[in-house]
């Protein structure tokens, strides 16, 4: 009987540890969710625009991560007011950033988001 109690206690402990580890892993995975930013290769005529992976959870922060790698890139994507350039278009998981989002750049990025930064046909 004691053995049964001990076994049950051990199982609960193991379960508790398992539960704790799961929670930690889940939190870690959220903190390190990876979004991928892909810039039009038309930009490479002018400056480096490599694919960037970021843990940012908002579009503007994701772009900032790319600008950290190449500060020149900022002026090609954003104007001096920090707005998306008139003739640049961004898709987040296939959805076009539009209207006030082009000013705020506050579109959420989720785990495994794919962001395409492209030239709009309106610009040429």
């Amino acid at each position: 009987m004691y053995q049964a109690i001990l076994t049950a206690a051990a199982n609960e402990t193991i379960f508790a540890i398992y539960f704790f580890v799961c929670c930690v892993l889940c939190k870690i995975s959220k903190e390190f969710a990876i979004a991928k930013l892909i810039f039009t290769q038309q930009l490479t005529r002018f400056t480096d625009a490599p694919e960037v992976e970021t843990t940012a959870t908002v579009l503007r922060a994701g772009l900032e991560a790319a600008f950290d790698l190449n500060p020149l890139l900022r002026g090609y994507v954003l104007d001096e007011q920090g707005h998306l350039r008139k003739h640049v278009v961004i898709f987040v998981d296939g959805v076009r950033v539009r209207d006030h989002e082009r000013v705020m750049l506050d579109v959420p990025l989720s785990s495994n988001s794919t962001v395409h930064i492209l030239q709009a046909l309106s610009g040429g």
């Binding site: 002018f46 020149l72 002026g75």
Partner: peptide, 27 residues
Amino acid sequence: NLGHFGVKLHRRDAGSASWKEIAVPAY
């Protein structure tokens, strides 16, 4: 004045064959 990517400014120094992108006036 790039159609999509805005106004840019480049400088080529005397004796140099290559251009360097420099800052643009910003409001």
